[in-house]
């Protein structure tokens, strides 16, 4: 098995505390992200500063918000699903607020909103959501689909966002920006738990 050979090699190279995960991805029962390593990361430059990241994360959150609004409307008949997706809309809103507070706490200044909007809104805002998926395509896809399929898409989107934020927290050079990504990944995890909870009930 490759991972075993790799672990042996790493131990030989002098690393301590190396563990081979038995069974690989097939044994993994947790969340699975999709896409190549660079997926989504192209939006963020490793040299980006906290302000740029907040702006971009903001634009992506806005896309997610529109996506959840669209799904909530689509399932207006299904009370439980409607409530759930509306909760996610408000979660994305408070996420935006949180980004702002994080930014202020880290830098001691308020971000220049107008500048951020001007920079990102034309190219991105509301068209692409977290995980790098186009909102329009995603909303077109859910037409005629059931709640559980929409939940699966939402989960896939959130897992990819979670994956992206973890990787960015490692790749980014700016210490403050690193902390923003760590916070974002923690919050994505909360969204995921919510979504997964409803999916469990529906399947």
């Amino acid at each position: 098995m490759r991972s075993r050979s790799a672990a042996t090699f790493l131990l030989g190279a002098g690393l301590k505390n190396v563990y081979n995960m038995e069974g690989g991805i097939r044994a993994w029962k947790g969340m699975v992200a999709q896409g190549l390593p660079e997926a989504g990361m192209a939006y963020f430059s490793p040299a980006a500063n906290a302000e740029e990241i907040v702006g971009l994360a903001w634009a992506l959150e806005e896309g997610s918000k529109f996506f959840y609004q669209g799904i909530a409307e689509h399932f207006s008949e299904d009370k439980e699903a409607h409530k759930m997706f509306n909760w996610l809309v408000s979660a994305e809103k408070s996420h935006e607020k949180h980004l702002l507070e994080t930014y202020e706490a880290l830098t001691g200044t308020k971000p220049d909103f107008e500048k951020m909007r001007a920079k990102f809104s034309d190219s991105l805002s509301g068209t692409v959501m977290e995980g790098g998926i186009a909102v329009k395509e995603a909303l077109a896809w859910i037409q005629g689909k059931g709640v559980s399929e929409s939940l699966e898409l939402a989960i896939a989107m959130e897992v990819n966002a979670f994956d992206l934020y973890i990787k960015m927290s490692r790749a980014i050079e700016d210490k403050q920006a690193q902390q923003i990504f760590e916070k974002l990944s923690e919050e994505e995890q909360v969204h995921l738990e919510k979504l997964a909870g409803l999916l469990d009930k529906r399947v």
Partner: peptide, 9 residues
């Protein structure tokens, strides 16, 4: 690309 643990390098 088909599937990985979130955050995996």
């Amino acid at each position: 690309e088909r599937g990985h643990i979130p955050g995996a390098n």
